[in-house]
C-alpha cells in the first residue's frame, strides 16, 4: 500500500513550523506506524535531507516516549494503543495521514514531532511520592490492603506519562496525569499520610507549569493509551476538598 503523509516540521521552539508532505510508496500493512516513519527517514537520509525527528523508545507501548497526534488524535485514536503499537493495516491504501506533535504551552517543541515534557516532571517532583527512606520500612505485609483498593491503585498507576491527556485536552490540562498519581497514592495507607500536602502541591505545580484547568471534557480518558479513567480526576477533586478543609 501507499500513503501520503503530512508531517509537522519545526526546527526548534522558536521556529515557525509548517506541514510538509511526503509520498510513501511500498508500505507493508504489517508495519507499525513508526516503522513506516523509519522508512520515510531512511529515504530522506539517503537523499541527504534532514530526517523527521520523533520520540520513541520501547516500541511496545509502555515507556511513554512516543508522542504524535495522528489525524487529529493523540496516538491515532485506536483504543488503548500508543503510536508505536499502531499498525499500518489500520489505514486505507492511499490514505492521507496528518502527523503532528503534542501542542501545549507547557510542551515546547524541540524539533519536528519531539516536544519537551519536562513540565510533567515538575508535577511529579512536587509530590508524586511517599516520603519514605531507603531501608527502615515496615514489612510488606505489615499493613493489609484490600484487593479492591490495590486494584484501584493499580488502575491509576497504569499511567505511562506520555502526555496524551494534555495533548487531547482542549484546555491543555494535565489533570488526568496529576489525578492518576494523587489517586494511586491517596487510597494506600502508605500514601494517605501525605495525601493533603500532595494534592495541593501537585495541582499547584500543574498550574505553575502552564497547564490549563480541567473543564471535564473527558477527552483525556478517550485518548489515553492506557485507558486511565477520569474518575481519578474526581478523586483528586475530592482529595483537594478534604485538604482545603484541613
Amino acid at each position: 500500500m501507499k500513503v501520503k503523509l503530512h508531517v509537522w516540521r519545526q526546527n526548534g521552539p522558536n521556529d515557525k513550523g509548517t506541514m510538509e508532505t511526503y509520498e510513501v510508496p511500498n508500505v507493508s500493512s504489517d508495519q507499525s506506524f513508526l516503522e513506516m516513519l523509519d522508512d520515510v527517514n531512511l529515504a530522506l537520509a539517503k537523499d541527504g535531507r534532514d530526517v523527521i525527528a520523533f520520540d520513541h523508545d520501547c516500541r511496545e507501548g509502555i515507556c511513554g516516549m512516543c508522542s504524535q497526534v495522528i489525524n487529529g488524535v493523540p496516538h491515532g485514536g485506536q483504543e488503548r494503543t500508543t503510536v508505536c503499537q499502531l499498525h499500518m493495516r489500520e489505514f486505507e491504501d492511499g490514505a492521507e495521514i496528518f502527523v503532528e506533535p503534542w501542542k501545549a504551552r507547557a510542551f515546547p517543541v524541540i524539533k519536528d514531532l519531539v516536544v519537551d515534557r519536562g513540565a510533567l516532571e515538575k508535577i511529579m517532583q512536587a509530590g508524586g511520592y511517599t516520603s519514605c527512606h531507603t531501608g527502615g520500612v515496615a514489612d510488606g505485609n505489615a499493613l493489609p490492603i484490600g484487593k479492591d483498593i490495590a486494584d484501584y491503585s493499580m488502575d491509576a498507576a497504569e499511567c505511562i506519562g506520555c502526555g496524551a491527556c494534555v495533548a487531547s485536552c482542549p484546555n491543555s490540562s494535565a489533570m488526568l496525569y496529576t489525578g492518576a498519581k494523587v489517586a494511586q497514592l491517596a487510597v494506600l495507607p502508605q500514601g494517605k499520610v501525605e495525601a493533603h500536602k500532595r494534592v495541593m502541591a501537585m495541582t499547584e505545580a500543574a498550574k505553575e507549569q502552564g497547564f490549563g484547568n480541567c473543564t471535564n471534557h473527558y477527552e483525556c480518558q478517550a485518548s489515553c493509551p492506557k485507558g486511565v479513567n477520569v474518575k481519578f480526576i474526581a478523586k483528586l477533586n475530592r482529595e483537594y476538598m478534604k485538604a482545603l478543609c484541613k
Partner: peptide, 15 residues
Amino acid sequence: AATPERNVQIKRLKT
C-alpha cells in the same frame, strides 16, 4: 492561553 497554537487537524473523541 495554555494552548497558544493548535494542531492543524483536531478530532475530538468524547467532548
